[in-house]
Design a protein around this nucleic acid. Sequence first.
DNA 1: CACTGGAAAATGCCGC
DNA 2: GCGGCATTTTCCAGTG
Lengths: 90, 90, 90, 90
Amino acid sequence: MSDIDTVGIAGSRVRSFIERVEQLEQEIAELTEGKKEVFAEAKGEGFDVKILKEIIKLRKQDKDERDEHETLLDLYMRAMEEPEPVAKAA
Amino acid sequence: MSDIDTVGIAGSRVRSFIERVEQLEQEIAELTEGKKEVFAEAKGEGFDVKILKEIIKLRKQDKDERDEHETLLDLYMRAMEEPEPVAKAA
Amino acid sequence: MSDIDTVGIAGSRVRSFIERVEQLEQEIAELTEGKKEVFAEAKGEGFDVKILKEIIKLRKQDKDERDEHETLLDLYMRAMEEPEPVAKAA
Amino acid sequence: MSDIDTVGIAGSRVRSFIERVEQLEQEIAELTEGKKEVFAEAKGEGFDVKILKEIIKLRKQDKDERDEHETLLDLYMRAMEEPEPVAKAA
DNA sequence: CACTGGAAAATGCCGC
DNA sequence: GCGGCATTTTCCAGTG
């Protein structure tokens, strides 16, 4: 196979990857636009957008923290299962 | 209508806004995950992810510039259609 | 004043800023090194470094979340103090 | 020694490690804050922060390269001092 | 239009 | 030695 063909094939792959990413970014941009519209609507009804965002952030943090706690719990449990618990005599 | 009801109604609206935003953020997170997978796949085939991202960024820049040009073109064309050209009194 | 002098003066200021930052980064690097040593010491005594880091991260999150709650509380209280509370009749 | 005591002792050590790390991170945070202030000050005098950071990064690179050279120089000099040059049996 | 906060990218570190 | 992961730094959009 010639270099030209190789390049062509690789080029196709590159093009494919790039277009898939661009498609995803397109959809993300649309959803982001949707978020803006929701906030604008809320603002139009007299709600304080800053507070709404703060609430959403807190809820996310709570969720993350719960996930994190589970991670720690997992770590502890894995540590417990270890054959030699490493506790050294003082 | 009582204050309690007002609060209840406002609370429902708040809840609705928040859930809509969280739903949108959920979908965005999934698409972002999709992007990561595409890049991982490209990497697995030996492509340089950093360069791919560079290309995507450049293409976006180009697109933005083209959009900008179209905007300018629109402006010029609208100006052409104006009854009274452009000569502004000093 | 000549351009040369201006450049010279600006150069001194630039030099001063850069050296101050580099000094700070130097101290940061030493403290970071200190952290590594603490973790190495803990590891040497049989503790699981990953779990230690997880605990530290959680404690930081807890603190951040408390700060965040206070922020939200502040926002609510400021909103309460507003002349026109914006509650619209349905 | 009982398990309870062992746990207590290990707990003390854990606490000690964590507090030492948190103390270090506290100091790092303060120095990082100091960096931000220096950059803010520079910005206030009309300097381009992005460029300042670029300069600092380049100087660090240069310094790393110089350190690398010194390391190599050390290696060569130590090699010179060796009784039996370098001829290794295959 | 400057500033803050959040997403993305680059870097360095760790384990395998 | 390298890939994956965590941290740090950079960039950008949104806000006032």
